[in-house]
Nucleic acid binder design. Structure first.
Length: 821
RNA sequence: GCCCGGGUGGUGGAAUGGCAGACACGAAAGACUUAAAAUCUUUUGCCUGCAAAGGCGUGCGGGUUCGACUCCCGCCCUGGGCACCA
């Protein structure tokens, strides 16, 4: 008998499928559409690795299932080619990013075709292609024209040898200092004028819009937490012997009668203005030290509170209390107003700080425990509920009522103003790097910024966009922090709209730029007139299911939603939200249980596995190994097991004939179709494969297999093992010549007979007081009385019951009997 | 520190209020073989027991329920994210 020859089978069908583009997504097809999106990869390694394959295979199987269910499916792919990962790879490979992308794009595409992915390659995109980034630049100019993009001083790591560096390229040395990852040079934080996008202006819309999606709750929560909306009040305090004031934001003004100090973030401008002469040296030293710490390090280190007294006092207008002012790095400049008012009785961090610096603690809230004594230990610090005391006109009120009342009072007196703050900040949208979309603006002689073209000027856009990235082999950044573009004089020097000399912007956009809107371009990837045709967008959008990295739950997802919502407000896109549903995939670890990485040497490449076992084996292994969302190690043994399993399927074809299958087999078949359908619908590909295994184990015991059952089986196998399924399907139908419409992948998903799929007679457990004592066979339609009679007739039940009387008889139809004795 | 996940046999996992461990892997024993590989058969949560049988068991401690891996409260451990990697 023939052996399963994966190489022949796969090469044969792969060629035919892609030549005839059987996975074409048809614009305006009368079939219902499904847009299934998996995040596009950013090429940064020699080849696709098995982790990528995991991310794509399961959604791809799902997209194939939907196609067979009669949907017009868009499952596109492309390359997120700009940005640091590719530039970094180019530096290491000693090539230009252009060469690298050419090479990797080809490799990745070949790898995906080897995997048999059902992709309409006519829609392939590459974010570094001028025809693509023309529109990224055009969209950027929309932000600029509407005042949502502007240059702003923002902190960045700077290295005198390497120029500006990303957080990721900076390490902490043994002495606690900061050094560059490459070369180990000293680096420091400095302010640099960079383009930002004003995302906080969309904070409210980004929160509200979540209601229009079916995102799982954990993703909605993550997005809300990232935006972090807080309702509170800005209180202005006068400073003793000074004209300066300090403004603090607080959500708990109710406790303000207990305020005993103020803490400023080290970044705060007023520090230098109000620090006393005696304290100046100590304060300067502290501020300097805090400068090179990241926000995160500052937060993590707050277990031990540090800080320095400024030698100045603010007056609490409610109590006339003289509150000493400190600088401490646990207060972050980027949060609220960069200053907090310390209420040590009712905030744990404030309490710790007060203990350390011997600041008095005043109790202003009595909690449920009724404790009214002085607060001397951390366990007495009440942060969340209770009744006011020691707070004049607030006394006796619940804290929540008191919060409203005191805010009214502070506003009336002119000491405060109700405010809503968001933690979400301006998004730094520039890199001092070569490999990105050039920002299409120029600096005029007088320093003014001018967009190179108005987005509404159709002819101008055709002429001026894309602003192409000039080619150079010398693409490393400059030591002054600017990108390689700053030394390319021919490109740098240009003219403004009046023909006067001007200089181009030398910063480029971050990788996010292209990936913020790529899902729109797949809809109309070759359009030179607009970024995508509106009618086509109306047909395809929103994306029905978006699968990707859990690390993108906040930033990428939020960023692209922000862009999209802005476009919606401009009337450029047809729906309020880009993605109807989002699901994240887990991480596939190396065989050693560690994250796959080149340095650990545990990277598994699908290429070698495909060579040895075939793509179908790799695909089905990735489906079978575990649930899509979870993280687990790669297991070489699973590949062998699945390969054996596919061999077993293939061998079954020898038993196929026209004879009727046994009733038992018919039942198993219908059950299998029913279960697999439900599982594919819910992306439970691992249990779907189990169903196949159960079915095959049963078929192995049969003498013959009815041809219609066999055809149905090859159809449900098709999304999982497309090559083998095609081979078996073509043979079962006796097709000798390839015809696109005969492909198994364009057939209808099989239906099942509910009667055969449901077992009529069931064995159900009989419990006494929750412990299983016996089993009885019942039919689904049977009445409770009849079941009860059967159960009570059982010898085992009688024995177990003994002398006890039955207090309660519970029968859950088709499930279980429980007797309470 | 804050936020979001996750903890079930030797391993990956199944079961979303109804017989915990489906389906696999691994392991052990056996068959075939000169032998090995491959293949096939059987066993396999833990403990006591020759067996029959019994007891225990889903990170830990409580609770709700006739019934809890599943729901609620409080812990412990662990993975990820925290804004210039994307």
């Amino acid at each position: 008998m023939e052996n399963y020859d994966h190489k022949n089978i796969e090469n044969n069908w792969k060629e035919k499928w892609y030549k005839d583009n059987i996975y074409e997504a048809v614009d305006f097809s009368p079939k219902p559409k499904k847009y299934i999106l998996a995040e596009l990869p950013y090429p940064s390694g020699r080849a696709l690795h098995i982790g990528h394959a995991m991310r794509y295979t399961v959604p791809e199987v799902y997209s194939r299932y939907l196609r067979m269910k009669g949907f017009n499916v868009l499952f596109p792919m492309g390359w997120d080619a700009f940005g640091l990962p590719t530039e970094g790879y180019a530096i290491k490979a000693n090539k230009t990013p252009q060469e690298v992308i050419q090479e990797l794009g080809t490799n990745y595409k070949a790898a995906m075709q080897d995997m048999g992915y059902g992709i309409d390659w006519n829609r392939e995109i590459n974010t570094s292609d001028p025809k693509y980034y023309k529109w990224t630049q055009w969209l950027f100019l929309k932000f600029y024209e509407n005042g949502l993009a502007e240059p702003k001083e923002m902190p960045v790591w700077w290295c005198p040898e390497l120029g500006n560096l990303a957080d990721e390229e900076v390490l902490t040395a043994a002495d606690g200092g900061k050094v560059s990852e490459r070369g180990g040079y000293k680096v420091e934080k400095k302010m640099y004028k960079q383009w930002v996008l004003k995302m906080p202006m969309y904070a409210e819309k980004l929160i509200q819009g979540l209601d229009d999606t079916d995102f799982p709750d954990y993703i909605k929560t993550a997005q809300k937490n990232w935006i972090d909306k807080k309702v509170g009040i800005n209180i202005t305090y006068n400073i003793e012997n000074s004209d300066e004031t300090v403004i603090v934001f607080t959500t708990r003004p109710d406790t303000n009668f207990g305020a005993t100090f103020i803490v400023l973030a080290p970044e705060s401008d007023i520090i230098s203005k109000i620090t006393s002469a005696e304290q100046k040296a100590a304060v300067d030293e502290y501020v300097e030290k805090a400068k090179n710490k990241s926000d995160m390090e500052r937060i993590v280190e707050t277990k031990v509170k540090t800080g320095v007294f400024l030698g100045a006092y603010a007056i609490n207008p409610l109590t006339t209390y003289k509150m000493p002012i400190y600088v401490a790095d646990y207060v972050l400049g980027s949060v609220g107003t960069g200053a907090v008012v310390g209420v040590p009785g009712h905030d744990m961090r404030d309490f710790e700080f007060a203990q350390k610096f011997n600041i008095p603690v005043i109790r202003v809230v009595v909690g449920k425990d009724g404790d009214k004594s002085d607060i001397t230990t951390a366990s007495q610090v009440n942060e969340s509920d209770g009744t006011m005391i020691n707070s004049a006109f607030l006394d006796g009120m619940d804290i929540h009522d008191a919060t409203e009342k005191i805010m009214d009072y502070l506003e009336e007196k002119g000491w405060g103003k109700r405010t809503v703050t968001y933690k979400i900040r301006d998004w730094v949208f520039a890199r001092q790097r070569y490999w990105g979309e050039p920002i299409p603006v120029v600096y005029k002689e007088n320093g003014e910024i001018e967009a190179i073209v108005k987005t509404t000027d159709v002819e101008g856009v055709k002429k001026k966009l894309p602003l192409e990235l000039p080619y150079t082999k010398d693409f490393k950044p400059q030591s002054d922090g600017s990108s390689a573009l700053a030394r390319m004089d021919d490109w740098l020097n240009t003219t403004d709209s009046e023909g006067k000399p001007a200089k181009r912007e030398t910063q480029t956009m971050p990788t996010w730029a292209g990936s913020n809107w790529y899902f729109i371009r797949y809809i109309d990837p070759k359009n030179d007139e607009v970024f995508a045709d509106f009618e086509k967008m109306k047909y395809w959008l929103p994306v029905d299911k978006y699968y990707g990295d859990p690390g993108h739950t906040t930033m990428h997802l939020l960023y692209s939603r922000f862009w999209y919502k802005f476009f919606y407000d401009l009337g450029l896109v047809p729906t309020t939200e880009p993605y109807k549903y989002r699901m994240t995939g887990g991480l596939l670890l190396g065989p050693d249980g560690q994250k796959m990485s080149k340095s650990r040497g545990n990277v598994v490449e699908p290429g070698t596995l495909i060579e040895q076992f075939g793509a179908d084996t790799v695909r089905m292994t990735l489906c079978f190994i575990g649930p899509y969302e979870d993280t687990y190690p790669w297991n070489e043994n699973s590949v062998k097991a699945v390969h054996k399993f596919i061999n077993n399927i293939y061998a079954l074809k020898a038993k196929v004939n026209g004879k009727e299958s046994s009733l038992e087999t018919q039942k198993m078949y219908n059950k299998m179709i029913k279960n697999v359908t439900g599982m594919a619908e819910n992306l439970k590909m691992n249990t779907a494969v189990s169903e196949f295994m159960i079915f095959v184990n049963a078929l192995k015991k049969e003498e013959n297999i009815n041809i219609e059952i066999w055809k149905g089986f090859t159809k449900v196998l098709a999304p999982f093992i497309p090559f083998t399924a095609e081979e078996l399907w073509q043979e079962a139908n006796g097709f000798t010549e390839w015809k696109k419409e005969n492909s198994v992948h364009l057939q209808e998903w099989p239906t099942y007979d509910e009667k055969l799929a449901t077992e009529n007679l069931l064995k159900i457990a009989v419990q006494i007081n929750g412990k299983v004592k016996d089993e009885v066979e019942v039919s689904l339609a049977e009445s409770e009385d009849s079941v009860k009679t059967k159960v009570l007739a059982s010898e085992k039940v009688k024995a177990a019951l003994g002398e006890n009387t039955i207090k309660k008889f519970i029968y859950v139809p088709g499930k279980i009997v429980n007797i309470v004795a």
